[in-house]
């Protein structure tokens, strides 16, 4: 297998030497090693999906697709359905995306459009990314002991005065959709802000120059040129943030209220798929464990689809700027 090496050294005074056999061996083994690790990761993902799917089979064959549309969860009667959890997962994630997305994009604009000196931009960018370093359980505790007491007066006021609006139709009893959504939006904010910033920074300087050259004010340049140009990357950021919100568990298990209900009210307790799994597995019997695996498959499917969509959008648009 030895490759033919071009050797200029024998006949001339060239300093070029072919790579030694040790160099070649190192090169080849390094390549093999990286290849192994890459495939191992992919195999691991496949293995996880396979195992969860296998253990869900008894539940899938017993409950079928009716599992997705039923609203009862009765362990004693062996009746299971996860529609309220699917609803709770999507509802909380969409609301969090709305809030966190709005703030994330606003922050990205503020930190990339020359409002601040470059150094300060970098410092603030890093501080915001630190939000992602706070453990989920800490967010949960903060939500219970700080956030809920803090929002209770506002929630009461809204319910008392605007109770006819479906969103405020119940009073806040403690844990519920609203505090869960607030915490969730804080948790996805660093993701949205960071990727949106990348999308803005990827816009070539000449595009900005063109905007100002046309006689735009700073706001016109941002709203009419920079935002549309970065929109692909921003959309990808939102999808990834959404994926994160869907799978978030600990903070939601602590804050969402764990009630098997479907309600539009922001102040009503609810439940999400991830919280359902976290709270029910310790006491699960054989059948319930299989049911939980089925629910896990559903959650996995939703998050995988969202993440794949997000990654595809980001790569297709090259975070804005280019073609």
């Amino acid at each position: 297998m030895a490759m033919k090496q071009l050797s200029g050294a024998e006949e001339s005074h060239s300093l070029s030497r072919p790579p030694s056999s040790v160099d070649i061996l190192f090169d080849k083994s390094f390549r093999a090693l990286t290849c192994t690790f890459t495939w191992a990761t992919i195999l691991l993902l496949a293995f996880i999906v396979y195992k969860i799917g296998r253990q869900a089979i008894p539940a899938v064959s017993t409950y079928g697709l009716g599992f997705l549309t039923s609203t009862t969860w009765d362990v004693n009667a062996h009746e299971f359905g996860i529609l309220p959890e699917i609803w709770g997962t999507l509802y909380s994630s969409f609301l969090a995306l709305f809030l966190g997305g709005f703030f994330g994009i606003t922050i990205a604009i503020f930190l990339t459009q020359d409002f601040l000196p470059h150094k300060l931009e970098m410092i603030l960018k890093n501080i915001i990314e630190l939000l992602a370093a706070i453990p989920s359980v800490v967010y949960g505790l903060w939500g219970i002991y700080v956030l809920i007491p803090l929002i209770r007066p506002v929630a009461d006021l809204l319910h008392d005065n605007l109770g006819w609006i479906p969103f405020f139709s119940t009073s806040l009893s403690g844990p519920g959709m609203f505090p869960a959504v607030l915490v969730l939006s804080i948790m996805i904010l660093p993701t949205v802000a960071a990727i949106s910033q990348d999308a803005f920074r990827a816009i070539p300087h000449k595009t900005k120059e063109a905007a100002f050259g046309m006689g735009t004010t700073r706001w016109e340049a941002i709203l009419r040129v920079m935002l549309p140009t970065a929109s692909g990357g921003i959309f990808g950021a939102l999808v990834l943030g959404f994926g994160r919100a869907l799978g978030e568990t600990m903070a939601l298990a602590m804050l969402v209220g764990n009630a098997n209900e479907i309600s539009l009210s922001l102040f009503a307790p609810a439940n999400t798929l991830a919280a359902l799994l976290a709270l029910n597995f310790p006491e699960a019997g054989e059948l319930e464990a299989s049911v939980l695996m089925y629910a896990a498959c559903v959650l996995l499917l939703i998050t995988l689809l969202v993440n794949i969509a997000g990654a595809a959008i980001i790569s297709r648009t090259g975070s804005g700027g280019k073609k």
């Binding site: 070539p204 000449k206 595009t207 120059e209 063109a210 905007a211 100002f212 050259g213 046309m214 006689g215 735009t216 004010t217 040129v225 549309p228 140009t229 804005g320 700027g321």
Partner: peptide, 20 residues
């Protein structure tokens, strides 16, 4: 300066159409 740039147009070294 914004009104100046609206009255005096500019074409740049690198073609820089907007992504629209």
């Amino acid at each position: 300066p914004v009104s100046v740039r609206r009255n005096i147009g500019m074409v740049f070294q690198q073609p820089n159409p907007f992504s629209m």
